[in-house]
Structures are given as C-alpha cells and as structure tokens.
Design a protein around this nucleic acid. Sequence first.
DNA 1: ATCCAAAGTTAGGCAAGACGAATTCAGGAG
DNA 2: CTCCTGAATTCGTCTTGCCTAACTTTGGAT
Lengths: 232, 232
Amino acid sequence: MASAMRSSLSRSIEDYLKAILELQSEGTPAQTSAIADSLAVAPPSVSGMLKRLSEAGFIEYEPYKGVVLTAVGRRAALKIVRRHRILESYLMSKLGYDWDTVHDEAERLEHAVSDQLIERMAMALGHPRYDPHGAPIPTTAGDIERPDHVSLTDIPVGRIAELRMVGDKDPERLRYLATLGLKPGATFEVLSRQPFHGPVAIRVAGPMPRDQIVGYELAETLWCSMVEEEVG
Amino acid sequence: MASAMRSSLSRSIEDYLKAILELQSEGTPAQTSAIADSLAVAPPSVSGMLKRLSEAGFIEYEPYKGVVLTAVGRRAALKIVRRHRILESYLMSKLGYDWDTVHDEAERLEHAVSDQLIERMAMALGHPRYDPHGAPIPTTAGDIERPDHVSLTDIPVGRIAELRMVGDKDPERLRYLATLGLKPGATFEVLSRQPFHGPVAIRVAGPMPRDQIVGYELAETLWCSMVEEEVG
DNA sequence: ATCCAAAGTTAGGCAAGACGAATTCAGGAG
DNA sequence: CTCCTGAATTCGTCTTGCCTAACTTTGGAT
Ligand SMILES: [Mn+2]
Ligand SMILES: [Mn+2]
Ligand SMILES: [Mn+2]
Ligand SMILES: [Mn+2]
C-alpha cells in the first residue's frame, strides 16, 4: 500500500504535504503544532493525518519528534508547489489578476488541475522560472532552485540590493508592498537601520526614487540579493 | 437552514444538482436510478443525498416519485453549468485542448474556480453563447437558451440542415464525429433514411463534400436545425 | 383482485477528516 | 532527581458520502 499510485491525492493530503515541505525547509522537522497553524486545523487533526501519511509512505514520522518528507512525499509536495506557482503566474499574466489575489485562487485550483493543463499553461507562459512573488517554480522533474537570498534586515547600510522574493500568503501585506513600489525586481539602497529591531530606511530606485521606511517584521520577510559592490 | 449562504457547495452536491437539472430537462422529474447512472454511484447513495438536498431546499422530493429542482436549486445548478461550459470554451480556444478532452478537465475545475475567474475567462473569450459542443451557456443572471433543435433522425430526406449540438460526455464519440466532419456549424444534406431505426446517409458540405453513413443511435443525439427551404 | 419485477428506500457499515476533552510525553528549571 | 509546562497524542464523537443487503412500494401483467 505504500506504493505510489497515480490516482491523485485528496485536497487535504496535498495541502498537508505542501505545508510540511515548507516547514521542513527551515532545516528542522515539521512540528505538529506548526502544521496545525499553517493549515488552520486543530493539533489532533494533524496527529491523525500524520499517521495516515506515514502509513502511505509520504513522511517519516517519529511521534513527538516531528515529521520529514520521504522522497515520495517530497516529489508529491513539489508537484503541488509547481502547480500553485504556475497557476499564480498564469492568472496574473493571462487573466489580469493582481499579485495579492492569485494566491487564494491557486490554493483551490492546484488540487483540481491536470498535469496536462499545468504544462499547457507553463508553455503558454514560456516556462517561467519564478512566480509573481519571486518564488522559484519546481521543474516537472521535481527540481527546485534553492535561492540564497538574504533578508532586508541583513543588508548593510549603503548597499544596493534587489528585491527577489516576498511571502504571498497575506493579500493586505502584498497590497501594502505594492504601494511602496516593492515588487520582485525592485532595486533600492539601504539608507539606515535602527537598532533593537527598528525600521529600515531605503531609497527605491526608479524614474522617481522614493524613500520608504520598512518596519523590522516586514523587512525580515523581504528576500533580497545584494548588487555587486563597485570594485575600485 | 434552507437559506442560500454563499459558502460554496461540495463537489458532490454540485454534481448532483447538475445531473438533476439535465435529467429533468426531459420534462419529467429526475428518477433516482437515472441520477445514480449519471453519477456512477449506487441508488442508495442517491436516496441519501436526495434527502439532504431536499432538507437544504434545493429540490422538491416526493419519495418514489423522483425529484425536481426548486428555484434555488435550479439557480445553483445553472451556475455550475455556466462554469463548466465557459471552462470548456476557454480550454479549447486559449490552451489548445481538443473538443474530446475538455469535458473531463472542466468536470473537476467547475468545482474549484471562483466566480471571478469564470467571468474573467468569459471576458477573455468575448462572452461566448455556446460551448465547443454547441450547448448554450447560461448567463450570470441564470438564464439559458432553450434551443428547439431537432434530432438528425427527424430530418426528412432531401433537406439541408446544420449541426448545432452534440453530447460531450463520450470522448471516443467526439473523436469519431470529428473524423466525419461533424462539428457544430457543419451543414449537410440528408440523402436517405433507412426504416426500422436504420442508418442515415448524409452529404457533409464543404470544399470537398463527403458522404457519410450515421447509425441511428448516434444520429438520435445529433441536434440540428433545418435550413430554410427555398421557396418557389 | 393478485402477484411480480423493477425501482426506491431503509438499515447498518466504513473511511476520510475534522473537533474537544482527557491523557501522556519531553525537556528545562530547580 | 523531580516536577512542571507546553506540545503531542489518544479517545470518543460528528459529518459527509459512499457501499451492500434487506426491505418496501409501485404499477403493470395476469
Ligand atoms: Mn491548496
Ligand atoms: Mn506565490
Ligand atoms: Mn463535476
Ligand atoms: Mn460541453
């Protein structure tokens, strides 16, 4: 029963796998309560599902110690992530969605689309490598880029950096970021950083550069790459 | 509890409502076993669901007598039908699907898409009135054209007719029809009709007219409109 | 008027997923 | 080493949707 049939998993299972993939990407096993939070279910529901996922061979489950995806589970999770991100990209570029509304739509569609549909969308888009929030899109082979971005809070004052990726789960945050001109690809200079988890001041480049203040909490989740220093 | 909350119905309920709508369109109430056949479930499953649908106010249920949709149920069913047909149209014209594969994909997606997505697809298509199989697409207001088509088996020999609509549930049948050049819009002349449910011979118009023989069973489900007779 | 077959319903179960309440474990503080 | 606390699990229950087996009902044939 642990073998991988192709017959499509339930919506619940797919969402659990995706949540576990994301949580374990922090480096540590995914904890029950973190999964519960992420999926908005109660911890006992998670315990129950973990047992089923483990019996089905998707996770390595050591009670009280958290869970890690097996190779099969990781494959399955990455497949959903690919679907999600292709869908987001398609909805934005072909159907006029905004970057703050694509996530919810993709969250449901990812469980209903066929592989064929996803590949047709990918082709129509020219096989994009990043979704609208800058997240890398796994390949059909199940490979995913592991970007080595640095948080805005870790960029020294005076450096130029480019915004590469932002979390896509909170529409309000995305709308706010848009008003600051902070979308992936935006370039900026760090003007100042206040101590004790204080705000970061940046100057966003563009035809009309704008100075903005970004709170620490927000800045922590803005993933950037530093632009090469001019070498004397 | 019979009031119409917006919170989206389950996939099962939506498919039941759609099946009932189609069956009752024959003029008589939808029978339990017909619903069971249509959804590939056992009759007791239908009885159970009918009770729930009736309590929820979607159908008028008189045990042993079949069911009819209430106004609320009809509204809900037509909404799913709209989704299904817009999806089919979109998949064909924007994503290169063939007319024999769109149905299955739409059958799953119809339960996952938002109203907004459907309306964006409809807009991108220029608000089509018919789906790829010639079926009329309900409006957002819940109106649907009641076409007065006639079956190919009822068209007199010698008459010219246009194919308007074909059933979309059997991919093989659709592929076969395509090889005959029989898609909605095709025009043809009825050459002969054999008695005792025998085949119908037609000449399909086009740059290179082709004579075809269509079995009675198939001919019965090809919905056509007769082209005006030349008068005097 | 009776009987029968087909259609439909009821009864009883099962699996998936969720919940709250009660219990158990693990790891840190003392 | 013991105790406490927060995290996790177990337990019992619910809902949805499906099934088979057993039953009722219906309506036509005799
Ligand atoms: Mn999802
Ligand atoms: Mn995203
Ligand atoms: Mn469906
Ligand atoms: Mn169709």
